[in-house]
Computed example of a mutant assay.
Amino acid sequence: MRVSRKTWGVLGLAVLAQVGFSITEQGIPALNGFIKTDLGVSAAIAGLIVACFPLGRIGGSYAAGIAADRFGERRVLLAGGIVGGGLTVLAASAPVVGLCGLFFLAGAASAAATPAGGRMVLAAFPPHRHGLALGARQTGIPLGGLIATATLPSLAHAAGWRWALVFAGVLTVAFVLPLLRVELDSSSATPGAGPSPGGDRDVRLLTLWGSLVVVGQYALLAFLALDIHDATGRSLASASVLVVAAQAAGIAGRLGWGWLSDRGDRPRRKPMLLVLTSTGFVSALLLFAVPRSAPLGALLAVAVLAGSSLVGFQGLWITMLAELSPPGRVGATTGFAITFTVTAVTLTPPVLGLVADVAGTYRAVWAVLAGLLACAFIPALLVREPRDRLAT
Rank of each mutant, 00 (worst) to 15 (best):
G331L: 02
W8K: 06
P197H: 12
G86M: 07
A356D: 11
L274Q: 10
P197M: 05
W209I: 00
V50G: 03
W257N: 07
T207F: 06
L347H: 01
L102T: 12
G307F: 03
L221W: 01
R201C: 08
T339N: 11
T319K: 12
S308C: 14
V302D: 09
R70F: 00
E385D: 06
F175R: 05
A337D: 05
L48H: 03
G335W: 10
P127A: 05
A189M: 03
W366M: 00
L16I: 13
C375I: 13
G169I: 02
L273Q: 12
I49P: 09
T149Q: 10
A391G: 15
T232D: 09
G56D: 13
V243W: 03
E73N: 14
F104K: 08
L390H: 11
S154C: 00
L347R: 08
F53W: 05
L287P: 11
F125M: 14
L55H: 10
V10A: 14
C375N: 04
A112V: 04
T346L: 14
A189K: 10
A156R: 01
L143A: 12
C100W: 04
L255S: 09
G101Q: 04
G65T: 04
S309M: 00
G20D: 06
A306H: 07
A51P: 04
A322C: 01
L99G: 11
